[in-house]
């Protein structure tokens, strides 16, 4: 049920990946995404994939979780595959031609596989960041990385605080939704069957109590923060300071070398059977 959602979930551990400075992890995660999109042939894609697998092995996050995180995006992958399969026009003869409307070219097949693998690698790779970094560390890092924007009067601290609170309350609200759903089911609510409108209507008895309690919680939290004299980011110190060390710079260097290699790979082996792509 709802409890089985793994995307954005943190799994505590003590691996090297877990211990890296979260600021560096975010930068490397962004670099990973750029890298993935620079890889324009299968060789590059495989290289990125191997790199990712290596990182997962180092982090000790299980294979089962990886597969679980993919489940929600399966429809997206399927749609991308189908679009690429039917709309890519190749140079040679089509493999399948039904009345000149549906035409499948070999290029279409290779591109759709390429796209599917790329999206999967994207999700799996990005998940590693949230699997190995606690939400608090993550928002701290975002606050620090965005801090130059403070000069432009951008409310960086407030934004980070809102993210922290939102992340903190996701599991609480999921648990609460589960409870309210069970309570209404015990009163004979039928949440699973019926058409779209019927289903939406059946959710009212769940949504209203959920909103009521969410507002109540927000109110109580605001009051509790005020009682402890919360005054925003000005002059606020932290209990846990972020420390970057040698290991972080080494990790960044490894990433840079790998990136350079990938660019070389792109230059020397351009386009492995992929004429153009629908992203």
């Amino acid at each position: 049920m709802l409890k089985d959602i793994t995307i954005g979930q943190f799994f505590p551990g003590n691996s090297l990946i877990h211990r890296l400075d979260s600021r560096f992890k975010i930068i490397m995660d962004i670099a990973y995404v750029v890298m993935l999109f620079t890889a324009s042939n299968y060789l590059g894609l495989i290289a990125v994939g191997l790199f990712m697998i290596l990182l997962y092995i180092m982090s000790g996050v299980g294979l089962r979780l990886v597969l679980k995180s993919l489940r929600p995006i399966m429809p997206l992958i399927a749609i991308t595959c189908i679009l690429n399969l039917f709309f890519i026009r190749g140079s040679g003869e089509p493999l399948l031609n039904i009345g000149g409307v549906i035409m499948i070219y070999p290029e279409g097949i290779t591109t759709s596989i390429f796209m599917a693998v790329r999206i999967m690698f994207l999700i799996i790779g990005m998940s590693l960041l949230t699997y190995t970094t606690s939400p608090i560390e993550l928002t701290d890092a975002i606050e620090r990385l965005l801090s130059p924007l403070k000069k432009l009067h951008f409310p960086v601290h407030e934004l980070a605080m809102m993210m922290t609170i939102a992340l903190r309350f996701i599991p609480t609200l999921i648990e609460e939704t589960d409870k309210i759903m069970s309570a209404q089911k015990a009163r004979g609510a039928n949440l699973d069957t019926g058409g779209l409108i019927k289903k939406a209507k059946a959710l009212i008895p769940v949504m209203i109590p959920l909103f009521v309690s969410a507002f109540k919680r927000a109110n109580e939290l605001a009051l509790a923060m005020e009682c402890r004299c919360y005054r925003g980011g000005e002059g606020r110190t932290r209990m846990k300071q972020l420390h970057s060390g040698l290991k972080d710079y080494i990790a960044l260097a490894v990433m840079a070398v790998f990136f350079a290699e990938l660019i070389l790979l792109n230059i020397y082996i351009p386009y492995l059977g992929i004429p153009y792509m629908v992203p």
Partner: peptide
Amino acid sequence: FKAGLVFQYSEHQLF
């Protein structure tokens, strides 16, 4: 309907 279950803090189910 046969086995009516009242949850803990059941007032949270009112809507």
